[in-house]
Write a protein that binds this DNA or RNA. Structure first.
Lengths: 145, 145
DNA sequence: TATTGTTATACTCTATAACTATA
DNA sequence: TATAGTTATAGAGTATAACAATA
C-alpha cells in the first residue's frame, strides 16, 4: 500500500492529484469500441442533466474552450446524437439538444459504458459511497472556484 | 447549483465521473510554460515517493501501457530529470531514478506547479479536507482493483 | 518461448490564434 | 466594436501492433 502523506495541504494535494490522474486514465480506457469517448459522454451527460443549451454554455459547463466543444459537437452531430436548432433571436447562436437517439444512448448505452465504475461503487461499503458523494461536492466547488 | 442525483450507484457514478473529468482538465491546464506536463509530473512524483524502479514497474504504478511510459521517460531524460542505470542482473531492464535536478524539481517547482490545488485545499474547511483524504483512499482502491 | 522494453503509427483531447457572421 | 462560434494548427496523452534484445 502506498505510504501516502496527506496530513499537510501539500501532501494531500499531491496524493489527490495522483489519484485523480490515474482514475481519469482508467475511465478513458473503459471505452467500448463503438461507443462515444469520455469527453463526448461528458457533454451528452451534461445536456441530459441540464437540458438544451448553446455551444458556449456547454463549453462553460464542461470547463473547456469553445473550439474544443466545437469539435466534440461536430463528432456528436455526425453520429446523430444531437440536434442543433438556430436561435430565432440571435442568429450567431444555436441551441444544442439531445436527439432521440442521443437520449436513448445516454440512458442506456451510457450506463453500460460506465458499468465498471458503477459496479465498483456498488461494491463499496456505504461509508465509502458517502465519502464519494461528499467528494463530488467538494470537487465541484474546487473546479467552479 | 447542479441538481445532482447521487443516491443511486448509477447516479453517483455519473456525477463522480463528471467531476473527475473536469478536475483533470483543470489540473492539466495549470501547467506553467516551461514546466513539466501533468503526466510527466505524475511519473516524477511516483519516483520520488517510491524510489527508483524499472520502466515497467513505473508503467504499472501509473496505470499506463509500457509504450506510453517510454515516451514520458524519453522526455524526462532529455531534460536531465532522470538517470537510467543498467540492471546488472537482467540486461533487458534499466533502473530509472530521479537525478539531482529531478529531485530538486519535484521538491520545489512541483510545489509551485500545483499551487492552485494546494491553495484551494488549504482554503477548505477541515471537514472537506478530511473528505478528500478519505476520497484518496477510496479512489486508490477503485483504481487498483 | 516468454519477458522487457522500444519504435512506429494513429487517434483522442485540448489549447491558442485567426477568421466569419451577427449584434 | 463586441460577441458567438468555427477553422486551422499544434502539442500532450495514450493505445495497439510489430520489433529487438535478453532470459
Amino acid at each position: 500500500m502506498t505510504k501516502t502523506e496527506t496530513r499537510t495541504s501539500g501532501g494531500l494535494a499531491s496524493a489527490f492529484r495522483l489519484s485523480v490522474v490515474r482514475l481519469n486514465r482508467r475511465l478513458r480506457s473503459q471505452r467500448a469500441d463503438n461507443s462515444v469517448t469520455l469527453t463526448q459522454l461528458a457533454a451528452l451527460s451534461t445536456l441530459h442533466r441540464h437540458g438544451a443549451m448553446t455551444p458556449g454554455a456547454l463549453a462553460a459547463h464542461e470547463k473547456v474552450q469553445p473550439p474544443s466543444m466545437t469539435r466534440v459537437l461536430t463528432a456528436l452531430q455526425e453520429r446523430g446524437l444531437i440536434d442543433r436548432q438556430a436561435d430565432p433571436v440571435d442568429r450567431r447562436q444555436s441551441i444544442v439538444a439531445l436527439s432521440d437517439v442521443g437520449t436513448k444512448l445516454v440512458t442506456e448505452e451510457v450506463r453500460a459504458r460506465e458499468a465498471w465504475l458503477c459496479t465498483k461503487i456498488k461494491d463499496l461499503p456505504e461509508p465509502d459511497r458517502q465519502t464519494l458523494r461528499d467528494a463530488v461536492e467538494v470537487i465541484t466547488r474546487l473546479v467552479e472556484s
